[in-house]
Simulated assay, not measured.
Amino acid sequence: MTAFFLKGSCARMVGSGNVSSGGATTDALIEHRREIADLLQRIKNRRLQVFGLYGTPVALVVTLLVWAGLKVFIWLNADTPTAINGIFAAAALLLGAAAVVQAIAEFGDSSPWTDSETSVRELKLDLALAEERHILEARRRTPPAMDRQASYKERIPGEIARLRGESRHYRRLHLLMQWLLFFSSAAISAVTAWYDPPQPAKGVLIGLGFTVTVITAAAGYFKPRERSFNLQQTADSIEQHTTALELGIAPYGAANEDENLGLFAATVEGIRAEQRMREQQLDQPQQGQQQVI
């Protein structure tokens, strides 16, 4: 009896130890991802800061040169209009103030910029090192295959929602293009029947004909209807397999949960690979699609 209690307590200790280890692994990997995301955002911010720091003085010089060029080539023997002087003076003042503020923010002692006087190259190096640490940490703390497959299963609802959202986007785009095409085509006939003189019907017909041509070409090139159909079909197929896994029905009726999760992950990845292939075929010209098929 004592041995039984000791064995139970040991099992609980091992289980709690596994949970604690798993939680530490998750926290460590999340921390690495946060560091990488923070560095990516810092690189974007730093690029904007450097662009503004060096681009604003250049824009100021170009503005002054354009102002002087207008005076020399257009209003050399006359006074420059007050409106033109006001616009260029306001633009030069604004650019000059922006250049001064950015220079103070970059080289000042108490700079509000996090990475002042730091090059984008250094931040990219920090990002590369952070990604390398994340890879090494993930390799060292790689969870068992069953845990990874279970985690993959939990991410599937978000993937289904993304696919359906993109499907709705392309379906609405297709409907908008079709309605514009309908109205423009009908308006061409109506304007042609209503107006006898060439004007203003001529300009209206040119605009409507241009609209019809652009919409027809865009619909044939981007194929929003086909993209919407493929995305919706992929989402429905993945949802069907997810439901089958949760209910334990074919093809996920095996008694071993590891086998079911492995089959589910392989099946969903196959469906996603087919979806990517269909997207690539839609991006190719018609002749290229026939060759691929």
Rank of each mutant, 00 (worst) to 15 (best):
A3H: 12
F4A: 12
F5E: 13
C10P: 03
R12Y: 11
N18P: 00
N18R: 07
N18Y: 05
S20W: 03
S20N: 00
S21N: 07
A24V: 01
I30Y: 15
I30S: 15
E31Y: 04
Y54F: 06
Y54A: 02
G55P: 03
V62L: 11
L65F: 06
A68W: 05
G69D: 02
D79A: 14
A91Y: 00
A92L: 07
A92G: 09
L95M: 02
A97I: 01
D109Y: 11
S111Q: 11
P112Q: 04
T114F: 10
S116L: 00
E117C: 07
S119A: 11
K124D: 12
L127Q: 07
L129M: 11
L129V: 13
H134P: 01
E137S: 13
P143D: 01
P144C: 05
E154L: 04
P157R: 01
G158M: 02
I160E: 08
I160S: 07
Y170I: 02
I188L: 14
S189M: 08
A190M: 14
T192C: 09
A193Y: 15
A193G: 15
Y195Q: 07
Y195W: 15
P197G: 00
P200S: 10
K202H: 05
T216L: 02
A219M: 08
F222C: 04
Q232A: 07
D236G: 09
A255K: 10
D258A: 04
N260E: 06
L261E: 12
F264Y: 15
F264D: 09
G270W: 07
I271V: 10
R272P: 00
M277V: 10
Q284N: 10
Q284D: 11
Q291S: 06
Q291F: 13
I293Q: 03
